[in-house]
């Protein structure tokens, strides 16, 4: 199967399916409710000419909207994670853990930190599933 272009709606749909199909995710994420947006800073040299806004929504083990969106929609999310393109690529490729990237300041998080820590297993599982999407990155 061909790789999916990163940050496209098709890629977001595949990401959503991965999560929806994960029995383990449903068990872990029973307490999670809230939307998470991902903001990817532009990096023209690596094929990301403009900021990318992605919106994902989770509800007690189920998944709702997964969208490539505009700035306003992204900023409406309960949690907003932002960072450079290269960091997101490293996370998706499991070269760096999202929690480490956050602690080192390579990613920024807006939202209730206590809630995120309480549900850190859920967060890590979502990132883990992201890594399973066969992705073609802009600079690949």
């Amino acid at each position: 199967m061909a790789k999916l272009k990163a940050f496209t709606q098709e890629w977001m749909n595949a990401f959503r399916r991965r999560i929806a199909d994960s029995k383990e995710y449903r068990e872990i994420a029973g307490n999670w409710e809230g939307s998470v947006s991902i903001i990817i800073n532009p990096d023209p040299a690596r094929g990301v000419p403009e900021t990318v806004y992605l919106f994902t929504d989770y509800w007690h083990g189920d998944v709702k909207d997964f969208l490539v969106c505009d700035k306003a929609k992204a900023e409406s999310a309960d949690f907003i994670m932002s960072g450079d393109y290269i960091r997101w690529k490293q996370i998706a490729r499991k070269e760096i853990e999202a929690t480490k990237a956050l602690m080192q300041g390579k990613l920024k998080l807006k939202g209730n930190l206590v809630y995120v820590v309480r549900n850190v297993k859920t967060v890590n599982k979502v990132v883990d599933l992201l890594g399973e999407v066969d992705t073609l990155f802009p600079d690949d």
Partner: peptide, 8 residues
């Protein structure tokens, strides 16, 4: 102010 580590 911008450190997630300090924030947590």
């Amino acid at each position: 102010r911008s450190s997630a580590f300090a924030g947590s």
